[in-house]
Amino acid sequence: MLRQGRTFLAAALAVCVAGAASADPVEGEELVINGDITLVTRVAPAASVADALPEVLSGWLFRDEATRAMEMDDFDNPAMLAVDVGLELWDTVDGSEGKSCASCHGDISSMKGLRAKLPKMNAAGDDLWSMENFINDCRTNRMGADAWKWSGSEMTAMTGAISLQSRGMPMSVAIDGPAAEWWAKGKEMYYTRTGQLELSCANCHEDNYGNHIRADHLSQGQLSGFPVYRLKNAKLVSIHNRFKGCVRDTRAETYAEGSPEFRALELYVASRGEGLSIEGVGVRP
C-alpha cells in the first residue's frame, strides 16, 4: 500500500517536472515552406494508433527555432544540395543497358506521391519494399548497374530528390492484405524492450515525447521528414540509419539497414504518422 503511494508520488513528480521544463512541441507555429507551401505537422491519429497517440506530431515541432527556420526556406535547407545531386543522378546514364532513371520514368515529377505510400509490397507481392529497394531493383535489373549502398550518398541523394516530389502529400501506407503481417511484426518490435538498457521505441517516442533525455528533446520519432538532413552528421540520413542509432542507444545488437526487420518497423512507424505531410526533406539536429 505504502509502496503504491510512493510510486504514485514519483509519477506525480515526473509529471510536474516534465510540465515545467519544456512547453514544446512548439504551439502556434506552422511549417510553411518558401512562404508558400503549408505542411500538416499535427493531425489526429489514424484508427490503428488512436490508442497510442492523442495527436500525431512531426519531429519539426520539437526542434529549436533556428533548425525549424532552416527547413522553411529551400535556400537555407542544407539538404537541397544533396537533392540537386539526386536530380542529376536521375538523368545520369549508368550500367550495361545505357539507361538512366529518366529513360524509363521521364521527369522525376512522375514519382509524385510515392514517398507517402512507402514502404509497400513489391509487384510480385512477396516482399515489403522500402524506397531503397525499388531504386536498387531498377539499377540492378533494368539498368545493369551496381546496387547503391543503403545509406550511401548516392542513395540518400536519390531518396531525397524523390521524396521532394511528394512534399505536402499526406503519409498513408497500406497496412492491410499481405502488408498486415509486416505491420504486426513492426508493431511488436516497436514495443519490445531491447538491449542492456531494456528500452523500446515506445519508451522514448510514445511515453516521453516532449521530454528531454540528456540534451535530446524527444519527438514522436515520425518519418515525415525523411530522408532528413542531420546537422550533426552534415548529411542526409536514411530511415534505417536512424533506426540503427536508436537501437544501438539501448545497448542492443542492431539490425542491418535494409533488413526485413527494419522494413517491417518502417511500415509500422510510417502508419503511426498517417496524415502528416511529407516534408521532403527535413532538417534535424
Binding site: 524492450r193 538491449g195 531494456e198 544501438r248 539501448t250 545497448r251 545488437e253 542492431t254
Partner: peptide, 10 residues
C-alpha cells in the same frame, strides 16, 4: 536481455 549488445557499439 533481448538482443544484448556490446556497450554502445551496436
Amino acid at each position: 536481455y533481448i538482443r544484448q549488445g556490446d556497450g554502445y557499439t551496436g
